[in-house]
Amino acid sequence: MSFDFSVITQNAPLLWQGFLITVYYTVITIVAGMIIGLVVGLIQLTPYRLLAWLGRVYVEFFRNIPLLVILLWTYYALPIFMGLNITKGWAGFVALSCYVGAFYAEILRAGVQSIEPGQTDAATAIGMSYSQRMRRIILPQAFRRMVPPLAGQSIIQMKNTTLLSIITVPDLLYQASYISSFTYRPMEIYTAIGIIYVVVLTPLTLLARRLEKRGGLSL
């Protein structure tokens, strides 16, 4: 069997469309996930037990259910239970954002808790309120420590968008299976998809490494 990569060049426009969809969902779910992560992470850190507990429940719920199940459930079951009609785009966006948000929340919580208690003491002693302490003293230090795990989780997020193809969102993987369905050349096409992911994500990994080094030095 020999590889025939002409199927790639012939279907480049479809792959390009898929690529844009993948990037689009990666970016918007990371942004939404960060907002969710910030809120849920901070909720988990509040002295209010009930709130903290709710944050904990959220995290454990989305962290321990396979993403594929969440995705299918959001798209097929949510409309039945809630009686609302949800497009596949919205279902994908909601499921992926909530899922990655749970992981970001944990990264935030761990980052904040890794800051020495002496920092809170010192900030409290000069009369800072809880929000001043968080904003000025704790979070700036925690964010630096959070860069490597945030980068790691975001890279995983880009790869997780491939699951969108299951609910027929036309991302890169969906286009790949579509192209192979009429060209009968799955090997070439999936190889190409793999290469695209490597080419996009490797520079991002290297960038995260550089940020990690910088963060380490300044502390």
């Binding site: 010192a122 409290t124 002693a125 009369g127 230090q141």
Partner: peptide, 22 residues
């Protein structure tokens, strides 16, 4: 708020310095 305001009338120096490293 009031606790923070009155607390700020004391200055504290710690064993481990606890300076803000950033």
């Amino acid at each position: 708020r009031q606790v923070n305001r009155i607390r700020a009338k004391t200055g504290m120096v710690f064993q481990q310095f606890n300076l803000f490293p950033h």
